[in-house]
Write a protein that binds this DNA or RNA. Structure first.
Lengths: 381, 381
DNA sequence: CCACTTAAGCAACGCTGTTGCCAAAGTGCA
DNA sequence: TGCACTTTGGCAACAGCGTTGCTTAAGTGG
């Protein structure tokens, strides 16, 4: 790591604390305590962020016997990102600000089984519609360059020159890129889908590169469960470890360990549904026997939600013990159809084994998580 | 992160590459390529490391048309660490050099069920015997301070002053500390055992602090499986992800994800043996049903090794799919009694599910891994 | 009203990795 | 044997990072 990288690292640290503080804001001294930097260093860093339009002063705290602390806040409108959720039968596109708040959404029904070009066209059309409707500048502006610098120091290819000392208090906001979430398997490093269940024609399509070309934006691709887990991780008040279990068409999982999304080297982590919980159980499509997904969905199919919840809870318990995680978050259409029953059933299994992990149900939207694929690096995630 | 921390970080990066290169050594230019630093920066860093006695020049490579590259090597004898393996019926104490190579060992039979003081006394006696037998300086020397600086920048408490420009080419080697591995559960942050199966009197004993007092050395405590996994991780040619599965008195696991040991917030990660693989199976002592450990050990008890291997392989497959890890490493008394059968059985299960993870058996000693608890921070691990 | 406390900026500084230049130490062709 | 060329690695000057010492700003409380 060199000096520019150090600068980016610390800027990301500060930006992340500003983001987490949200509407409440945070003072320079508290930033200093939390980052371990000196107050003077924080002053310099926040001065840069303010000059770049990413942060601003917003009121003061009550005095504790001396000069009151000045509160700093993130400027959510300084930058935006697009989130795309490419589901089996539906396409959702959202625009999200720097704070992760959705500011616009479009939704179309779309068959993932349609031709690759049809889907790519649809994404292009929807994103363009979102852009023009919300008038977020397409061209790279001051804040974009600032955020990019904050995110990665090795970005040497950018020929962008940030203007000195923005005279206007608010530089034009800009679009940082588009994050795309879809059912796995896929490789997030190359941005290429693998053999998507039921849609083999997607295998090997250079989806990310193609979208970069069509949208003229940086694009990141990841599994729907990973995107959702990432979004949830950024909403946690403090970095922790949790698993997002998604029960929909299949049973998948996104893992966040110590605040960081764990993808594995081949984006293969999170194959939660095909763990064996019944040795020599019924044969599963994956080639295994007694897979959690098969047993759980079979219970759902025959209307036995308590049993489905118990099976899901058993899988969750395996995971909690193996990884020592703090909480389990449930989501997906099937869970959301009976959230109380699934939460209760899962909780009961964990409690019965003496495990302290919390259980919650979230209706968190995948598309917002997809946008976080773009925003997360800004905050060092 | 500040400048001293940056310096430590880069020094650790370079030291790790020197360590990995081993006897072959590595040139300055290759270090520059691998770290992303400029050659000049690497020259400065390695000059410091050489002055501190941690690295030295050792020959040159063949020329490729110009000045031949000078080879740099780690000086293994620059520092040492003690590794303590506190097992249920035996105490093993080793001395390990900076390269992780064992240079001395002592072994005594010792009942973990004996009084806490008896065990502490035994550790003290054995470590002292090891020290005097190998004449490794007890007092902190130049290299110690250097290694400590390389390891952690926040170490402000040290009142040690490193001498300027050591005139002698080889500063006195020093003992960095002692790593202790024992059966879990325990908390590695506080260095306190939890409710060790069969030995409840260890619960809450401030083991690490007590040993710091008795040995006069920094001490780290961790689970035996974690220590072993850490040791194996440091032997990998490239940082990767793997699980160390230990089948002995019980069935435990150490997880290394992207080259880093995953302990979980409460050192609870690795509860591999108590995952349910047989819904509504036989009751286990942990309160669950159909636990992997119970089923696997039952098969071992009735002499059915192939079945034990198949069950172990099933658990391994769950883990490989969940975490997308590269390889599975087997160890422990039971496995080592029939290494080929366990390896083959595990491999067959993985292959049958189309998983590419490699399977190997290791006789790697826990005590060496324990010593790595002390050495690892020097290399940024 | 004034002493005191707390927050935050200015200027000088030490130390980081970087850049530009040059010496060292080989190869290979004439 | 000599000389041009290639490659390595150190020296010196430098830009930029966070830190230190001090000053100014802006409150509280007797």
């Amino acid at each position: 790591m060199n000096l520019p990288a150090l600068r980016s690292h610390n800027a990301a640290l500060v930006l992340d604390l500003l983001r987490t503080a949200g509407e409440d804001g945070i003072s320079r001294l508290e930033l200093a305590e939390r980052t371990g930097l000196t107050p003077q260093a924080v002053s310099k860093i926040t001065a840069r962020l303010r000059a770049e339009g990413l942060a601003r002063e917003a009121g003061r705290r009550a005095s504790t016997g001396g000069k009151p602390r000045t509160v700093l806040r993130l400027v959510p409108s300084a930058a935006y990102a697009v989130g795309v959720h490419l589901d089996r039968d539906e396409l959702t596109v959202v625009l999200v600000d720097l704070a992760g708040v959705r500011v616009a959404r479009r939704r179309t029904s779309l068959d993932l089984g349609a031709g690759v070009d049809v889907v790519l066209d649809a994404i292009g059309t929807e994103v363009e519609a979102l852009r023009s409707a919300t008038a977020v500048a397409t061209e790279t502006a001051t804040a974009t360059a600032a955020v990019k610098r904050a995110a990665t120091a090795t970005e040497t290819e950018s020929g962008i020159e940030a203007g000195d000392e923005a005279p206007a208090p608010a530089p034009a906001p800009a679009l940082l890129g588009a994050g795309v979430a879809m059912p796995g398997p896929l490789d997030h490093l190359t941005g290429t889908p693998g053999r998507v269940t039921g849609h083999p024609h997607w295998e090997g399509v250079p989806l990310r590169d193609e979208l970069v070309r069509r949208l003229g934006l940086p694009v990141e691709l990841d599994k729907d469960t990973n995107a959702t887990a990432l979004g949830l991780a950024l909403h946690a008040p403090v970095p922790d470890s949790f698993a997002y279990l998604h029960l929909g068409t299949g049973l998948g999982c996104g893992l966040v360990l110590d605040g960081a999304l764990h993808r594995g080297a081949r984006t293969g982590a999170g194959e939660f549904g095909h763990q064996t919980v019944q040795l020599d159980g019924p044969l599963c499509g994956c080639g295994g026997r007694g897979c959690l997904e098969a047993l759980c969905l079979a219970a759902v199919a025959r209307g036995d939600i308590p049993e489905a919840a118990r099976i899901l809870g058993t899988g969750a318990a395996n995971l909690v013990r193996l990884l020592d995680i703090d909480r389990v978050v449930l989501g997906g259409r099937v869970v959301l159809a009976a959230p109380e029953e699934f939460a209760r059933g899962t909780r009961e299994v964990l409690a019965g084994l003496g495990l302290a992990a919390g259980v919650a149900v979230t209706p968190y939207a995948v598309a917002e998580g997809a946008a976080q694929l773009i925003l997360a690096p800004t905050f060092g995630k």
